[in-house]
Write a protein that binds this DNA or RNA. Structure first.
Lengths: 151, 151
DNA sequence: CTGGCCAACCGAACGACGTTCGGCAGATCT
DNA sequence: AGATCTGCCGAACGTCGTTCGGTTGGCCAG
């Protein structure tokens, strides 16, 4: 996949602020607005940029408590792993869902109102028959990197 | 914190597509563009919306291999936890860094080119003196929810 | 060496957009 | 009931996104 340093610079800008105006970026990079627009459209069409999203502060919407829930399925239930995954992803509390190797099969990153709500969520999840083991870790701090530049 | 259903609707829209035009959103919600602009400015000023970010496809930038690295620090090194955390967050491979309770102290969500690069990263991390235990899980699938609506 | 070809970039022009501001309506309090 | 304040509206202005024709520079074939 082609990816010169102009594309990279645009990626870096748009990851920091997806609402930067086209003209601003063009001026900053020393290219014409029309060129800039074409490059960005190319990035979208090639799928390099998959979307633009507003980041919402979890505290502001009363979801200050985060946790990582590690889940191991019963070996006999692994066939239903996809269905289980879909279920968890669709839970409104879920922020991320990882299917992983190692000691657990899934890690669910969730955000809820408080520890009580976390308790309720875990107890609710534990009802599912396919689960062999479930353990939760409270997240004290979470840092997310929005800028993912090529290595 | 005040948060009526108009703010909520705007949040939902902007989380799905941060580049929607102000007029479009206003029309969709049946309000004037000026009103819409004012509400969004309010959300930003109150910190409900912390930013707008372009989402980049990791495969497109040759970072298709993801992992969760669980790290436990030596008890004597826990005082340096913040410094260690900063170090990992600044690694270009790091996507997320969680400080958690439970069996591990930190979970690092990383994206690298291939398993070889993952091996290098883990071996490099393991050199740090404050680490008592480190174990990595390959991420087979990762689903991220961009829309975080109030519960 | 030269001619032709193709891709990328530019600049102008037009329609659409963001943003501001004055005014208005509804609610609240005295 | 009158005053006050908050939130919303609609018009107007300057800016922006987007398109398109023309130009340049690099590359390959003859």
């Amino acid at each position: 996949m082609v990816m010169d340093e102009l594309d990279t610079a645009l990626l870096r800008i748009l990851q920091n602020d997806a609402r930067r105006t086209n003209r601003e970026m063009a001026a900053e990079l020393g290219i014409a607005p029309s060129t800039c627009l074409e490059r960005i459209r190319g990035l979208r069409e090639r799928g390099v940029i998959s979307g633009y999203h507003a980041a919402v502060d979890l505290q502001a919407i009363d979801r200050s408590t985060q946790a990582i829930i590690s889940i191991k399925l019963r070996p006999q239930a692994m066939a239903k792993a996809t269905a289980f995954q879909d279920y968890v992803v669709r839970l409104p509390q879920t922020l991320d869902m990882f299917m992983v190797s190692g000691g657990s099969d899934f890690l669910a990153h969730v955000a809820v109102k408080d520890t009580q709500a976390l308790r309720d969520l875990v107890l609710d999840l534990a009802k599912r028959q396919e689960i062999a083991d479930i353990r939760s870790s409270v997240v004290f701090e979470h840092h997310h990197r929005t800028t993912v530049l090529p290595l």
